[in-house]
């Protein structure tokens, strides 16, 4: 694992967003947190009703615990996107106990709705709550983050695996909350791309992360969990980038940092692809 030292400094801490409930990482699903997520999701659903670029398109249904549930998904077709566009999947909420990442991704969907040029020419799929079944049942962490997608028994991972095969994503971006005690954001690169690319140089630059303290890591080699566990069967060799944000950060900073880093990543990624195509 390659670790690049952290850069940047903290920013003034704004008051916590009362709309978004805190959940302790690794704990059980708080009913009010689940309710707050559903409210936020409904608000984003309503917001994107008339959007020409962002579309709510949940996949499923799947059965869990005698109930029927859908996996929330938003699809974004940037201006001038086509069938040949680069496709990226954003994943958050691998545990019902980590709904802050889900809120952050929903906030990013809102940002894409407002600033569609940010994803110019890109085809994005955003899954704000992977553990939809767990939240629906109020179940504790089901270990979906570490699940092998090819041998998954969780219906959500089966749906994600099917969708990945179907869409042939070029990359997966995972948002998660770092364990308690972590004070800097981490960008972790996995997959074959990690062997060839330096993540801070190619996919996001330390110059672009602004005041957010960030550490870069690269994990080359085969993956036994997540989307890269089925990478051999996918039409393209994808990369996986994990954005891990400290749990201790207040909600507003957490969301702003996620939005900023994801947007900068998209800019850099688009520029990178344009350069590659030019070559």
């Amino acid at each position: 694992m390659t670790v690049v030292p952290a850069r940047g400094s903290g920013r003034p801490v704004p008051p916590m967003n009362p709309h978004i409930a805190h959940t302790a990482a690794g704990g059980t699903v708080d009913a009010s947190a689940g309710e707050a997520f559903r409210e936020h999701l409904s608000a984003v659903y309503a917001l994107t009703q008339d959007s020409p670029h962002v579309f709510a398109s949940p996949i499923g249904p799947f059965a869990i615990g005698g109930r029927s549930a859908f996996l929330p998904r938003f699809v974004f077709f940037g201006p001038h996107a086509s069938d040949q566009s680069w496709r990226l999947a954003f994943l958050a909420g691998f545990s019902g106990a980590d709904l802050r990442s889900s809120h952050a991704l929903l906030a990013f969907v809102e940002r894409l709705f407002r600033e569609s040029d940010a994803g110019h020419g890109l085809h994005l799929a955003l899954f704000p709550l992977v553990d939809a079944g767990g939240v629906s049942l109020g179940a504790p962490d089901r270990g979906l983050a570490a699940g092998h997608w090819g041998r998954a028994h969780a219906p959500e991972l089966e749906l994600l695996e099917k969708d990945s095969r179907l869409q042939g994503y070029h990359g997966f971006i995972r948002i998660e909350s770092a364990p308690a005690g972590e004070s800097v954001a981490t960008l972790r690169m996995r997959g074959s791309a990690a062997e060839e690319l330096s993540p801070d140089l190619e996919l996001i630059s330390t110059d672009e992360t602004g005041p957010i303290p960030i550490r870069f890591e690269a994990c080359p080699g085969p993956a036994e969990s997540g989307p890269l566990s089925v990478a051999d069967d996918l039409p393209f060799a994808p990369f996986e980038l994990t954005l891990s944000l400290p749990s201790a950060w207040p909600d507003a900073i957490y969301q702003n940092a996620a939005g900023l880093l994801l947007q900068r990543f998209l800019w850099r990624y688009r520029a990178f692809q344009a350069y590659a195509q030019n070559l």
């Binding site: 409904s42 659903y45 309503a46 398109s57 949940p58 996949i59 699809v75 077709f77 179907l166």
Partner: peptide, 23 residues
């Protein structure tokens, strides 16, 4: 169909999607 909005989404599926969004 792949169920991709604007591309391969049929009307019955869109109706189901709307219902899932409580619309």
């Amino acid at each position: 169909s792949g169920n991709m909005p604007m591309r391969t989404e049929i009307v019955p599926l869109l109706i189901i999607t709307k219902l899932e969004q409580f619309d």
